[in-house]
Design a protein around this nucleic acid. Sequence first.
DNA 1: TTTTTTCACTTGCAATTTGCAAGTAATTGG
DNA 2: CCAATTACTTGCAAATTGCAAGTGAAAAAA
Lengths: 138, 138
Amino acid sequence: MKVLKQRSTCPISTALDVLGDKWTLLILRDMVFAGKSTYGQFLQSAEKMATNILADRLAVLESQGILTKAVAADKKSKFTYRLTEKGVDTVPLIIELVLWGAKHCPTIVDSGLLAELQGEKDAAVEKYKQLAREMARA
Amino acid sequence: MKVLKQRSTCPISTALDVLGDKWTLLILRDMVFAGKSTYGQFLQSAEKMATNILADRLAVLESQGILTKAVAADKKSKFTYRLTEKGVDTVPLIIELVLWGAKHCPTIVDSGLLAELQGEKDAAVEKYKQLAREMARA
DNA sequence: TTTTTTCACTTGCAATTTGCAAGTAATTGG
DNA sequence: CCAATTACTTGCAAATTGCAAGTGAAAAAA
């Protein structure tokens, strides 16, 4: 069981103790926006995460109660990772990252998604949280 | 001039290339919520950032156009760091970190602030963005 | 039934990044 | 002039990362 050290009692600092690195939120992005749920799927993302880093981050996320790990329904040799409510609650954060990145950095975003997020943000946040919950049930 | 490498064209990944580490957003937090603007003030935060890391992150933030550096009005030996609009636009992100950290981790938050953020979030985001702009003008 | 492939990691190691302590150089206050 | 302040820089040990290769269990192929 991974133990994280907390630098202070500040909620921002503590949130960053858990989520503040270059890889963790990409795993959550893949779960929320790409519906990914297995080790192999995470490895295929464009950013090419190293296998040991992925294994480490999944273990941290599990020990922090952000996702759960269970044997896959189809294969005994495969695991399925699902978001908990604590994980689903990172959706607003991820959406703010999309908006900031799209506005201020040279990136490629689906224009429909961007319009949706820029228009009715609260509704979009709820929609993607609900979608994430449904995937976690499947 | 610091050069950051972009792992992919995804806005989330690119935002994390810039902001995704344990220290950068704490500097922005100190500017937005504590009104800090100098090297010495940043060093005094509860998390005790190392001096070389602070100098490095300030240089990255400046080169990324998130903040500007200028000689202080009162002393020639002092610098004042101010948020640009790109920096002000991280306020929604920082507020989501407060909300997630306060809800899911053991932290200490001002209950008035928390109530404000949980109640009228959009209004609170606008208020703190405006405050951050005013501090950047001062 | 044996063999091969797939999947989910683990291991080893070099390279980078971090954290700590100490040092420096330019003001500024007295 | 001299001590203190401010904003860094430097050196170095320790921790973290990234890459390549290896492992072991289960599933598919022969």
